[in-house]
Amino acid sequence: MMQPAESRGEIRSASGDPTPAAYRFSHLDALEAESIFVMREVVAEFERPVLLFSGGKDSIVMLRLAQKAFAPGRIPFPVMHVDTGHNFHEVIEYRDRRVAELGLQLVIASVPEALARGLVTEAANGSRNRIQTPVLLDAVDKYRFDALFGGARRDEEKARAKERVFSFRDEFGQWDPKNQRPELWSLYNGRHHPGESIRVFPLSNWTELDIWHYIGREGIPLPSIYYAHDREVVERDGMLFAVNEFLAARDGERVFTERVRYRTVGDATLTAAVASDADTVEKVIAEVGATRVTERGATRGDDKVSEAAMEDRKREGYF
């Protein structure tokens, strides 16, 4: 009869097998191999893929993976930035530098421009989170993109935890969580009718910590705001927001200088900084490894609207 103690760590190897000890593969290598596989599948099967590039760390890692997937050739698709107009200048400079270095085509889906031509109107509270979606979908239509690489990870948020690597979107860009295609083995189904598209998330299985380990291992440069620096901030809803041309202190809010860094980078009015002394990759890794709050929980005003804020936005066609 089988006993658990005996089955533990038992080595089962068919006779003649090469010894597997020599074929160790770290989890970062495994994640990298999976992401590269996903990107190659898309380029092989789609006509007009595009990579959503915000200048945030996840899209920066995604771009590095794209470089690796098609080396020594160039990245065979353009990148697109959905620009709310509320940007950190360090991030825009990084974006433009990176795109130039890699010789990529950059498509900017601009919210200010969409506001000017009346595609969207400013929300009452001034937040451009929700009005990004029509701007994104408009650009998808205009350029007839059929696959959009996004840097979303499943560890970020519980709606994302249930989204496929190849996420089907109808002609309105909408996600239907109850009607997702089963995803088995590494067989991704990217079939779609004209007008429909697939959002592809090559970093699905990466965690925030994996991203940082990879940035460290690969020596990938990031916008400086990811590392500790002094900044004028106000405390709002328990989070630290930078005071700048987009965000002024409200009555009663005290402006003070704090040593901070950004854990996520997005719209400058919605993304909060965290108090931190981590000014190197190693220190950030140590900090992320010890933190007790998720990155979106710590830094995103937009997710605090309701339990299902992310799900609702995805249903509308959000990233």
Binding site: F25, S26, H27, L28, A30, R217, E218, G219, V281
Partner: peptide, 14 residues
């Protein structure tokens, strides 16, 4: 020069 030595976390398997 910027690339760190692999830590034990980087060597962990999946």
């Amino acid at each position: 020069t910027a690339v760190a030595e692999p830590t034990s976390a980087q060597r962990a398997d999946l």
